[in-house]
Amino acid sequence: MITRDPDAFLRFARGCAPDFGAATAKAAFLVAPEGFARAEQSAADNRYMAGAGAFDAGRAMAQHRALQRAMADILPTVCFPGDPRAPDGLFPNNAFATVPGRLLVGRMRHPVRQREAARADIRGFFADTLGYAIHDLSGQPHPCELTGAVVIDRARGLGFCGLSERCDAEGAALMHHAFGLRATLVFELAQGEYHTNVVLAVLAGRAALLCADGFADPGAVAAIATLYAPHVAMLGPGERGGFAGNAIALSEDTVWMSQAGGAALAPANRAALAQAGFQLRAVPLDAIEAGGGSLRCCIAEIY
Rank of each mutant, 00 (worst) to 15 (best):
residue 231 H to K: 08
residue 231 H to N: 15
residue 231 H to Y: 15
residue 232 V to W: 08
residue 233 A to F: 03
residue 233 A to C: 10
residue 233 A to K: 05
residue 234 M to H: 11
residue 235 L to Y: 12
residue 235 L to W: 11
residue 236 G to S: 10
residue 236 G to P: 07
residue 236 G to C: 12
residue 238 G to W: 01
residue 238 G to F: 04
residue 239 E to Q: 12
residue 239 E to T: 01
residue 240 R to A: 14
residue 240 R to K: 15
residue 240 R to S: 12
residue 241 G to D: 15
residue 241 G to M: 12
residue 241 G to L: 10
residue 242 G to N: 10
residue 243 F to Q: 07
residue 243 F to H: 09
residue 243 F to L: 11
residue 244 A to Q: 08
residue 244 A to C: 11
residue 244 A to I: 09
residue 244 A to P: 10
residue 245 G to N: 03
residue 245 G to E: 08
residue 245 G to S: 04
residue 247 A to F: 06
residue 248 I to F: 05
residue 249 A to L: 10
residue 249 A to I: 03
residue 249 A to K: 05
residue 250 L to M: 15
residue 250 L to Q: 00
residue 252 E to R: 00
residue 252 E to I: 00
residue 252 E to T: 00
residue 253 D to V: 02
residue 253 D to A: 12
residue 254 T to G: 00
residue 255 V to K: 01
residue 255 V to M: 01
residue 255 V to R: 00
residue 255 V to F: 06
residue 256 W to M: 13
residue 256 W to G: 01
residue 257 M to L: 15
residue 257 M to T: 13
residue 257 M to W: 09
residue 258 S to K: 02
residue 258 S to T: 04
residue 258 S to W: 08
residue 258 S to G: 13
residue 259 Q to D: 15
residue 260 A to C: 10
residue 261 G to P: 07
residue 261 G to M: 11
residue 262 G to L: 11
residue 262 G to C: 14
residue 262 G to H: 13
residue 263 A to Q: 12
residue 263 A to N: 08
residue 263 A to H: 11
residue 264 A to F: 07
residue 264 A to K: 10
residue 265 L to C: 13
residue 265 L to S: 08
residue 266 A to I: 12
residue 267 P to S: 04
residue 267 P to M: 02
residue 267 P to C: 04
residue 268 A to Y: 08
residue 268 A to P: 02
residue 268 A to H: 12
residue 269 N to R: 08
residue 270 R to M: 10
residue 270 R to T: 12
residue 270 R to Q: 15
residue 271 A to P: 06
residue 271 A to N: 13
residue 271 A to S: 14
residue 272 A to L: 05
residue 273 L to W: 09
residue 273 L to S: 09
residue 274 A to S: 11
residue 275 Q to W: 00
residue 275 Q to S: 15
residue 276 A to Q: 04
residue 277 G to V: 03
residue 278 F to D: 03
residue 278 F to N: 03
residue 279 Q to M: 11
residue 279 Q to L: 07
residue 280 L to D: 09
residue 280 L to R: 02
residue 281 R to N: 14
residue 282 A to V: 14
residue 283 V to L: 14
residue 283 V to H: 11
residue 283 V to S: 00
residue 283 V to M: 14
residue 283 V to G: 01
residue 284 P to H: 04
residue 285 L to P: 08
residue 285 L to E: 12
residue 287 A to Y: 06
residue 287 A to H: 06
residue 287 A to R: 01
residue 288 I to P: 01
residue 289 E to K: 07
residue 289 E to F: 10
residue 289 E to W: 07
residue 290 A to L: 03
residue 291 G to H: 02
residue 291 G to S: 02
residue 291 G to C: 02
residue 291 G to F: 04
residue 292 G to I: 05
residue 293 G to H: 04
residue 293 G to Y: 07
residue 293 G to T: 05
residue 293 G to L: 07
residue 293 G to M: 09
residue 294 S to N: 05
residue 295 L to I: 06
residue 295 L to G: 12
residue 296 R to W: 11
residue 296 R to L: 13
residue 296 R to K: 14
residue 297 C to L: 08
residue 297 C to I: 06
residue 297 C to W: 08
